[in-house]
Amino acid sequence: MAKTQLNVRVDEGTARAARERALARGVSVNRYIEELVMKDTGEAGQAFVEAAADFMKQYESVFAEEFGKDHETR
């Protein structure tokens, strides 16, 4: 995957914490930040899927009534 440069500005305390955490994990600051973003977006995606599944459970009868039994969930 191609890499894109992203410049961000953070306060010195945040920069120091990022450097320390990256060092403790044995990765670069770039990799540490990349992992944080991937984790955050993964959790958000999972939360969305769980909310959608909950919605479908709650309103399954409404959809069945509107669209008929031919469209039941599996």
Rank of each mutant, 00 (worst) to 15 (best):
M1L: 10
M1Q: 11
A2C: 12
Q5M: 14
Q5K: 07
Q5A: 11
L6T: 04
L6G: 01
L6D: 01
V8C: 13
V10F: 03
V10L: 06
D11P: 12
D11K: 11
D11F: 13
E12R: 06
E12D: 05
G13M: 05
G13S: 05
T14M: 12
A15S: 15
A15C: 13
A15I: 12
R16S: 12
A17Y: 10
A17D: 10
A17H: 08
A17S: 12
A18G: 02
A18Y: 02
R19I: 11
E20W: 08
E20M: 09
R21E: 13
R21N: 14
A22R: 07
L23S: 04
L23H: 03
R25Q: 11
G26E: 05
G26D: 08
V27Y: 00
S28A: 13
V29Y: 02
V29E: 02
N30M: 09
N30T: 11
N30P: 14
R31K: 06
R31G: 07
R31W: 09
Y32E: 08
Y32S: 08
Y32W: 13
Y32P: 03
I33A: 08
E34P: 00
E35A: 08
L36D: 07
V37M: 09
V37W: 11
M38N: 05
M38F: 06
K39C: 01
K39I: 04
T41S: 10
G42V: 00
E43N: 12
E43M: 07
A44Y: 12
G45N: 02
Q46R: 05
A47Q: 10
A47I: 05
A47L: 11
A47C: 14
V49D: 03
E50M: 07
A51I: 06
A51G: 03
A52D: 14
A53H: 08
A53Q: 14
A53K: 06
D54H: 15
D54W: 13
F55V: 03
F55I: 00
F55Q: 01
M56C: 04
K57I: 15
Q58P: 14
Q58H: 09
S61I: 03
S61H: 03
S61R: 04
V62Y: 11
V62Q: 12
F63L: 13
A64I: 05
E65I: 14
E65K: 11
E65G: 12
E66H: 06
E66C: 10
E66N: 12
F67S: 02
F67Y: 05
G68L: 01
G68H: 00
K69S: 13
D70A: 02
D70Y: 00
E72A: 03
E72H: 03
T73Q: 14
T73F: 08
R74P: 00
R74K: 00
R74Q: 01
